[in-house]
Write a protein that binds this DNA or RNA. Structure first.
Length: 259
DNA sequence: ATGCCTTGCTTAGCAAGA
């Protein structure tokens, strides 16, 4: 099976690119971030015509997440239970799996955090702490779990084009990386690093400064697999192709393959 | 460099992203 994550930075602008991508990459499930749509505007009919059933959770202007699956998903959760949040950042659901029975998919748009000394950073830390507590619970109920999305964290200096320039900057702080390690400590593995990868494996490139052309980016979109799924994970790759589109998202999709 | 794009909201610049 294949699962993927993609921050589309406005589903309104990127719908046709998404449909093209799904036609070329018929993954079993895809989580989206930054749909930037209220729920009444979600294009579920277009996605259904493309062979995908949608679960969605959005808001006006900002954030917004969705879970698209070929065969449908159950036990949907929107945002972190018990964590009061007016921002739409989490959608989780369960999909059937031939030999495992089922796999729990958790799609997240982690807070950006803006700057280490900002209120938004304080919110990011609180959100991460709440996510960890909930995921510990989720993992106990669903050993076969995949956590994927835009983490807005570059886990190591190898995930940053200019580690010196980005040192202690947002996405690269000690505190954010400690939270990433905490997620790993729950029994999750960065699927991308299970495999040998080409250097400069970014998932995001700034729209400014010709960053994509110069390949100046960060690896901040991730897929983490639970211990029970680790041995069945056979590939994980970033698809840079959509970043070359006209009017692209600034993020590229990441795909994991499970046996 | 309080900049550089892009998006949404609203219609001229902001807020926010990363």
């Amino acid at each position: 099976m294949q699962f993927a994550t993609w921050n589309v930075n406005s589903l309104t602008v990127r719908l046709n690119q998404l449909l093209d991508w799904l036609a070329a990459n018929p993954v079993d499930a895809l989580v989206l971030q930054e749909t930037k749509l209220t729920d009444d505007k979600f294009p579920h009919a277009d996605l259904e015509a493309a062979g995908y059933q949608s679960q969605w959770f959005g808001q006006k202007t900002y954030n917004g997440v969705a879970l698209l699956t070929k065969v449908g998903s159950t036990d949907i959760v929107k945002n972190i239970p018990g964590f009061a949040d007016d921002q739409a950042r989490v959608i989780a659901g369960t999909v059937p799996h031939d030999s495992l029975g089922s796999v729990r998919l958790v799609g997240c748009y982690f807070p950006n955090g803006q700057a280490p000394d900002s209120d938004k950073f304080v919110y990011k830390m609180a959100w991460l702490t709440a996510l960890e507590a909930w995921l510990q619970d989720e993992l106990s109920r669903h050993p076969n779990l995949v956590l994927m999305g835009d983490f807005n964290v570059a886990p190591t200096d190898a995930d940053v084009y200019d580690p010196i320039g980005w040192k202690d900057q947002i996405h690269c702080t000690v505190e954010e990386r400690a939270h990433f390690d905490k997620l790993v400590g729950l029994g999750l593995t960065d699927a991308f690093r299970l495999f040998e990868q080409a250097p400069k494996p970014w998932t995001w490139w700034d729209y400014r400064n010709l960053a994509f052309r110069k390949n100046q980016g960060l690896r901040i979109d991730h897929i983490l697999v639970s211990d029970a799924l680790k041995a069945r994970t056979t590939a994980c790759a970033i698809d840079k192709a959509p970043r070359k589109n006209e009017r692209p998202s600034d993020h590229a999709p990441v795909i994991v393959t499970l046996a």
